[in-house]
């Protein structure tokens, strides 16, 4: 049960990421703007990426006893 929820969370995250990383959402960051000296697009990808890693870690690190479906 618990594992199933985790699996669903992971699948949902990957769908969200797919949305955030591709057109049209990514076009929001596709501007000729520098933020803190870094191109906005690069910064956007970097931030989404970092957040994704944090989310993955928090989903997978929740303690649970049973690993089975």
């Amino acid at each position: 049960m618990q594992s199933n929820v985790k699996r669903q969370k992971l699948i949902l995250t990957s769908i969200l990421l797919m949305g955030l990383f591709t057109y049209p959402v990514i076009s929001i960051a596709n501007k000729r703007v520098m933020v803190a000296g870094i191109p906005l697009l690069f910064l956007y990808v970097l931030l989404v990426w970092i957040i994704a890693i944090i989310v993955f870690a928090s989903i997978t690190n929740t303690k649970q006893r049973k690993e089975d479906e």
């Binding site: 699996r7 992971l10 990957s14 990421l17 797919m18 990808v45 990426w49 993955f56």
Partner: peptide, 13 residues
């Protein structure tokens, strides 16, 4: 590298 990142979430299933 972003492809594998998205796929990583699907590693479990």
């Amino acid at each position: 590298y972003i492809g594998p990142t998205i796929m990583a979430a699907l590693f479990w299933p």
